[in-house]
Nucleic acid binder design. Structure first.
Length: 494
RNA sequence: GCGGGAAUAGCUCAGCUGGUAGAGCAUCAGUUUCCCAAACUGAAGGCCGCGGGUUCGAAUCCCGUUUCCCGCUCCA
């Protein structure tokens, strides 16, 4: 990482805190690792990003609907999805080679080696010891077995091991009134399953016809081993996901469609296209037959912001298997042979975007330290060039001075606008300072009320990006701001 | 998880070989200002991340711990 980009990232983090976008969680208690809170401006920005996504999905597609499913779900769902078994391995690290292994895998290898040497008795004892330890989930015992069996790291050839730790990506908690063995429930590690288990509810109650999509925005939780890089990887994060259900065999054309549509959504915010790239997965997850990431170039390199996955019928099939309920759809449309397609389990194309990463992307992309120095004096400003529709504050209203009835006039104008737009009123400090303060939180325009306003009811609009000013009739403000921040402006090219 | 670095006012940081905690900007009150971070006066703001140790005395030295950053690692 070069010094400049490193610096830039740090400056954005400082700026985010100083101007009320993002705070470390529980800061007065020293913080909580990889958990962050959104402040007064951050909450507005985040909501606006959500709105842009929601409208582009649900409002613009008459075959996509949105739901809001619970964070708590039946524990069996995570068995069906593969999250329980796939992420509860006992892991151990070698301190010398700094490599991590599955503890049971290491012992299995040793057993195989012993067998190969003809020491079948030792192998059997070891196997029995390991099985007992795994069954009782005795991690300390597992380590002892590794030490006693003189198992060494294949790379460093040493037995300098850490303790065995259970890695489980899911947070668990207790729910009171359930049967003994089911009382442990998980905080969802992804929002997708809430959509799959409601597939039939939505399809039937909404009379949805394939192809159709279900969208959802919500929190998900992952107990990451290491969570770092500010809000790039957090333990509690928010996803915006859409599962698109299609007829089997058509999934690749829809995959292609969403791959393009999603990048278009990103570029719709005016971000330069060379900051983005696709990254095709060569190693596919067990459920997918195609997967691509949309990556954005952060100061520390390209990072995944959104994933588009062709999930086949894996999830619905699994839920059919585990729940015993038929997850099929009857397709009455006629195929080439003149017969209806009939019953089948739909295939799924998923688009899944990390809202927090999208938030950081928007901040990084908007942030500029602008040099305004002239020959007479040095000057600079920090400005956030948000697309107006995303800006936390849409306009600020300033009386030029605190006297002569200007504050009253400014308030009067604000009272007309505040129902439709998030407007700030400020009368403290010189006009220049107030402009710069609004630049720092990305307010697209500032409206100044001066003495002339009292005479002819015109005001000055000062634009954030160009710093240029223009004089307009106060009556025009509602329309001017409305046009500027309108969703139509960003959504219609999609 | 391993290794390296850091933590002092809201922000950016200074504080040397231990000796009473500082600056700039920001904040608040006022005076003066009438369109781009103006000036002046005043005020507030700190368990020097936290805990222990060494010392007559610790922001400073030592140990532990928490949090953050970087590299590796991990990442359905």
């Amino acid at each position: 990482m070069s010094k400049n980009t490193d610096e830039l990232f740090k400056n954005v983090i400082s700026h985010a805190k100083e101007y009320g976008f993002v705070f470390p969680s529980s800061e007065i208690y020293d913080g909580l690792s990889a958990v962050y809170d959104y402040g007064q401006n951050g909450a507005e920005l985040k909501n606006n990003i959500k709105t842009y996504w929601w409208k582009s999905m649900v409002q613009l597609h008459d075959n996509i609907v949105g739901i809001d499913s619970a964070i708590f779900m039946h524990p069996k769902i995570w068995k069906a999805s593969g999250h329980v078994d796939g992420f509860s391995d006992p892991m151990i690290d070698n301190k010398d080679s700094q490599k991590r292994y599955r503890a049971d895998q290491l012992i299995e290898d040793k057993i195989a080696a012993l067998d190969a040497e003809g020491k079948t008795d030792e192998a059997e004892t070891l196997q029995a010891d390991m099985d007992a330890a795994l069954k009782s989930e005795d991690l300390q015992r597992l380590k002892e077995i590794i030490i006693d069996a003189k198992i060494v790291c294949p790379i460093s050839k040493t037995a300098n091991w850490t303790d065995v730790r259970q890695f489980n990506l899911m947070f668990s908690t207790q729910m009171g009134a359930m049967a003994e063995e089911s009382s442990e429930i998980y905080l969802r590690p992804e929002t997708a399953q809430g959509i799959f288990v409601n597939f039939l509810n939505v399809q039937k109650s909404g009379r949805m016809k394939i192809p159709f999509g279900i969208a959802q925005i919500g929190k998900a939780f992952r107990n990451e081993v290491i969570a770092r890089q500010f809000i790039i990887r957090m333990r509690e994060f928010e996803q915006m996901e859409m599962q698109f259900f299609v007829r089997p065999g058509t999934e690749m054309e829809w995959y292609k469609y969403w791959k393009e549509a999603r990048l278009k959504w990103h570029l719709g915010l005016g971000t330069s296209a060379d900051k983005y790239r696709y990254h095709d997965h060569t190693k596919l997850a067990h459920y997918a037959n195609a997967a691509v990431d949309i990556e954005y170039e952060f100061p520390f390199g390209f990072k995944e912001v959104e994933g588009i996955h062709s999930r086949t019928d894996f999830d619905l099939s699994q839920h059919q298997k585990f729940s015993g309920k038929k997850m099929q759809y009857f397709d009455p449309e006629l195929g080439e042979d003149g017969k209806p397609y009939g019953n089948y389990i739909p295939y799924v194309i998923e688009t899944s975007i990390g809202l927090d990463r999208m938030f950081l992307l928007t901040m990084m992309n908007a942030y500029e330290e602008e040099d305004l120095s002239t020959e007479e004096r040095e000057d600079s400003r920090v400005v956030l060039h948000f697309p107006p529709a995303l800006a936390p504050v849409k306009a600020a209203i300033f009386p030029l001075t605190k006297k002569d009835g200007l504050p009253e006039k400014a308030r009067e104008i604000m009272d007309k606008l505040k129902f439709d737009f998030n407007i700030q009123y400020e009368e403290k400090d010189t006009i220049g300072k107030r402009y710069r303060r609004q630049d720092a939180i990305g307010t697209p325009i500032c409206i100044t009320v001066d003495h002339q306003t009292l005479e002819d009811n015109t005001v000055t609009i000062r634009h954030r990006d160009s710093m240029a000013q223009e004089r307009v009739a106060a009556d025009q403000l509602e329309k001017i701001i409305g046009d500027m921040v309108s969703w139509k402006r960003v959504l219609s090219p999609l």
